[in-house]
Amino acid sequence: MFRFETEVDKERGLLLRSLLRDTNTAASPAIRALRGTPDERELPLQVWAFDPADGSLAGGLDAHVWATWLHVDLLWVADRHRGAGLGSRLLTEAENLAVEHHGCANSRLETWDFQAPGFYRQHGYEVVSVIPDYPPGVKEFTLTKRLG
């Protein structure tokens, strides 16, 4: 069974960004830079999953809350754990924490066409915008969901 933690951990957040950057770079050389640091009014929210076999990071979700919105910045699951529901569990845990501890009413996120727009739709998210060629050759989707 996975071990989960919800404690905000800056080093793991940086690791998660690095791991997702590596995954995205491998999938699409067109991707260049990640977002900058969040506005200081934003509160971080992170959920971690650890592999029961060796304790390594199996997946993680890095987000922030602001103005009754959860903004999922990154969701990453290790290759060997994909397709087993871990991404769903990470997302659900973050949404529940956002509602229960931060009073969030909505969630938003961005994803690229080669990542997971179908995954988020299965979890109740709706596409509100599509940006073609952001970066060139890739579509970026913005999705939102009413929480609670």
Rank of each mutant, 00 (worst) to 15 (best):
residue 52 P to T: 10
residue 142 T to L: 04
residue 47 V to M: 01
residue 141 F to G: 04
residue 46 Q to A: 06
residue 56 S to N: 15
residue 97 L to I: 06
residue 28 S to D: 11
residue 43 L to A: 10
residue 135 P to V: 06
residue 67 A to N: 14
residue 70 L to Y: 01
residue 17 R to G: 15
residue 25 T to W: 02
residue 59 G to W: 06
residue 71 H to D: 10
residue 136 P to Y: 04
residue 131 I to Q: 13
residue 92 T to H: 10
residue 56 S to H: 13
residue 53 A to P: 05
residue 129 S to W: 02
residue 73 D to T: 11
residue 48 W to Y: 02
residue 112 W to P: 03
residue 9 D to W: 02
residue 140 E to P: 04
residue 121 R to M: 09
residue 13 G to N: 12
residue 77 V to F: 09
residue 30 A to N: 12
residue 71 H to C: 07
residue 81 H to P: 07
residue 87 G to R: 02
residue 75 L to S: 07
residue 40 E to Y: 03
residue 63 A to H: 00
residue 59 G to K: 05
residue 118 G to D: 12
residue 103 G to P: 04
residue 20 L to H: 10
residue 93 E to A: 12
residue 3 R to E: 13
residue 100 E to P: 01
residue 67 A to I: 03
residue 67 A to W: 07
residue 23 T to Y: 15
residue 74 L to H: 15
residue 44 P to Y: 03
residue 30 A to S: 15
residue 118 G to K: 05
residue 100 E to L: 04
residue 120 Y to L: 00
residue 8 V to Y: 06
residue 124 G to M: 08
residue 85 G to V: 05
residue 51 D to K: 09
residue 99 V to R: 02
residue 27 A to E: 15
residue 67 A to Q: 10
residue 82 R to K: 11
residue 27 A to W: 03
residue 20 L to P: 08
residue 4 F to T: 07
residue 43 L to V: 10
residue 137 G to K: 06
residue 57 L to C: 06
residue 6 T to K: 05
residue 59 G to M: 06
residue 13 G to Y: 02
residue 16 L to R: 03
residue 58 A to C: 09
residue 125 Y to E: 07
residue 116 A to T: 08
residue 119 F to P: 08
residue 25 T to I: 04
residue 4 F to W: 05
residue 12 R to C: 01
residue 43 L to R: 12
residue 94 A to S: 09
residue 137 G to S: 09
residue 97 L to Y: 00
residue 48 W to F: 08
residue 135 P to F: 08
residue 111 T to F: 05
residue 50 F to Q: 06
residue 124 G to D: 07
residue 18 S to N: 15
residue 128 V to W: 03
residue 146 R to L: 08
residue 2 F to A: 06
residue 118 G to P: 07
residue 107 S to I: 01
residue 3 R to A: 11
